[in-house]
Design a protein around this nucleic acid. Structure first.
Lengths: 149, 149
DNA sequence: TGTATTTAATTGTATATACAATATCAATAT
DNA sequence: ATATTGATATTGTATATACAATTAAATACA
């Protein structure tokens, strides 16, 4: 008597699961960027938020979360750290609940300083994953954002 | 005078960065699986480890880490939790340093019980991301594992 | 106008993740 | 034989992440 049923199931999940494989690729790629940014004291997760806020100009947390598909509580803690580092600042708003944020000049400077590291990590990731990856990600994101309406 | 230089840089990174987009897709997909497994008290990160160990039979932590591209310290903490839940057990080894692990019968049962949830999440992810995603992930992983030799 | 509902964000708690440092044991060189 | 080096895993520390509960403020409504 064998365990073939559970073994088959295990092998199927291990080899076919989208999440398992996506998460591996995510860890590998995140590490490339984290290594590149380390001399600047920043992480890819923080650069994500920094450029998203930068693109928005004045950004309400909920809007940043919608773009990055982040939980608001996650963003709240990250913004806390990034305010402490002087990269982000809260600006007043008529709505007393809102806590809109924007880049400080230090935050902008960080993006500029990080540009060479980003380009290196970007190039390395493209070489690792192949030129097709960018289009594939855009396609995936397009579908995600269309379905999240 | 404008901020056009920093603005251009910010927009470039926000729209072209592989890591930003990959991390978004990863969060969205991980949530699909986490939601599916929640009634079982498991997370996709744990199922990753469970099926990897199941496939190996008797697994040394370092080997699991190589397959999943996980830091050994990360695995150590996860295994700790999963041992506490009775899903994994350590077996003795001649090498006093080694801590090889394997599935318990409870762990095997969990995989069986999780199968329907996995299939739902898998199907949902395929529908969301398109049929091409599986091949794309395999291609990426192939390149990653070839380069990590 | 006063209360209920909705909205925006934070706080409590738990897991996930990785780097640096440490502990333990094995293998090797002298 | 012993000291050094190397391998394996854990522990200390910090950040990232999300769900549930809470706080605070605006809006709806009766």
């Amino acid at each position: 008597m064998t365990n073939s049923k559970i073994d088959d199931l295990t092998n199927t999940i291990a080899s076919e699961c989208i999440a398992v494989r996506l998460r591996i690729v995510n860890r590998v790629v995140s590490k490339i960027y984290d290594d590149a940014f380390r001399p600047l004291g920043a992480k890819i997760s923080q650069m994500n938020i920094l450029v998203a806020v930068g693109k928005m100009g004045i950004a309400r947390p909920a809007d940043v979360c919608q773009v990055l598909h982040l939980d608001v509580s996650t963003l709240s803690r990250n913004v806390e750290r990034m305010k402490a580092r002087g990269w982000l600042e809260v600006i007043p708003d008529e709505d007393g609940r809102a806590q809109p944020i924007r880049l400080t000049s230090t935050g902008k400077k960080l993006i500029e300083q990080a540009a060479p590291a980003w380009e290196m990590a970007q190039k390395q990731s493209q070489e690792l994953l192949g030129a097709a990856i960018s289009g594939q990600l855009n396609q995936a994101l397009k579908r995600i954002n269309e379905s999240a309406s």
